[in-house]
């Protein structure tokens, strides 16, 4: 393929992904709305019966999020569309890299489409292990916003990397950071839903004495909180690794591994906030909604680092490629 054709194909794939994601968003929204009805929780029991006289009954907690119900069909359609969008976006990012002749992480446009891809990837990866369809709407929306901003405000033609970015540490550091961007987004989305559901439930209980039907498709607040914890527990070591890889790269490029450059400072702040989150999860009185707020603040710190520092602060790391 010629480079011009690659460029066109990359852009077309990304626009196509945005279209299918829009449909996915609608389908997720439909399933979300359809789920807003009474659901009664049923205790599921698993029986193991082998030969005569051996009985094993194990009662496990069940969750309304896993109940079959109306809206499930559109949730499934939405998931298929998300897979399709992921494939299109992957093709778009890969072709962008082929066009540029390097890893597609040279400017903010490329970071943004990669971050969108990573968010979908983490979400779909989780969907293989557990039911996360309830989360879909709140993943697709930020991904669409990111892509929309990428193709409008941030778009740049592919160009050579500035020399400071030419390093295999770039590949290591940025790929870890990009995956973290996806995971932090998902953690914050789940934390936000936990707070929302908790708040709505308390109001519903105050009004009607029952909390049925409030965000019924969404798992219980405790499940949401533990889901958030799981995602943060996955991303925190990865983020630590990304920061260390960045430090190694900085040592190689600038002669110091840590210099409190604004980008480094905000990476540190993000790290400290998520460390505080993990602590909060083991501290009495902080485990619930307070911890959820900390996860959201951590995600905001990550965003400040990404947008704020690239645009507004004069930093060694200012290679946004937009001016």
């Amino acid at each position: 393929m010629t480079t011009a054709a690659l460029a066109q194909a990359s852009n077309a794939a990304i626009y196509a992904a945005m279209i299918t994601l829009t449909f996915a968003m609608v389908a997720f929204a439909v399933s979300f709305a359809a789920g807003r009805r009474r659901v009664t929780a049923v205790a599921a029991s698993v029986g193991v019966r082998e030969g005569e006289g051996s009985v094993a009954v194990l009662t496990r907690p069940s969750d309304p999020g896993e109940q079959p119900e109306a809206g499930r069909r559109s949730a499934n359609i939405a998931m298929s569309l998300t897979w399709l969008s992921f494939a299109l976006l992957l093709a778009g990012v890969v072709m962008r890299g082929l066009w540029a002749g390097r890893v597609p992480w040279g400017n903010m446009y490329e970071f943004s489409i990669s971050a969108a891809l990573a968010t979908l990837a983490v979400f779909l990866f989780l969907s293989l292990r557990t039911d996360v369809r309830w989360l879909g709407l709140f993943i697709v929306i930020p991904v669409l916003l990111t892509l929309g901003m990428a193709v409008t405000v941030l778009y740049t033609e592919a160009a050579q990397l500035v020399p400071a970015l030419k390093s295999y540490w770039l590949v290591i550091h940025v790929s870890a950071a990009v995956i973290c961007s996806g995971a932090f987004t998902i953690a914050a989305a789940a934390a936000g839903m936990g707070l929302l559901k908790g708040g709505l439930e308390r109001r519903a209980v105050a009004r009607t004495g029952s909390s049925d039907g409030v965000l019924a498709r969404v798992p219980s607040v405790e499940r949401l909180e533990s889901f958030t914890n799981r995602v943060v527990a996955f991303s925190f070591p990865l983020w630590t690794f990304a920061v260390v890889a960045g430090a190694i790269w900085a040592e190689n490029a600038w002669g110091r591994y840590w210099g409190w450059d604004p980008k480094e400072t905000w990476a540190f702040i993000t790290w400290v906030i998520f460390a505080a989150y993990l602590h909060a999860r083991s501290t009495n009185g902080w485990r619930g909604s307070k911890a959820s707020w900390i996860a959201i603040i951590g995600w905001l710190a990550f965003l400040i680092n990404y947008f704020g520092v690239n645009f507004f602060v004069n930093s060694l790391h200012s290679y946004a490629g937009v001016s």
Partner: peptide
């Protein structure tokens, strides 16, 4: 643990002016 938590927060906040 609670003090550790608060000190972690303070550390994050104290870094902000530096950026």
């Amino acid at each position: 643990m609670k003090t550790a938590l608060i000190l972690l927060f303070l550390l994050a906040i104290a870094s902000i002016p530096g950026s």
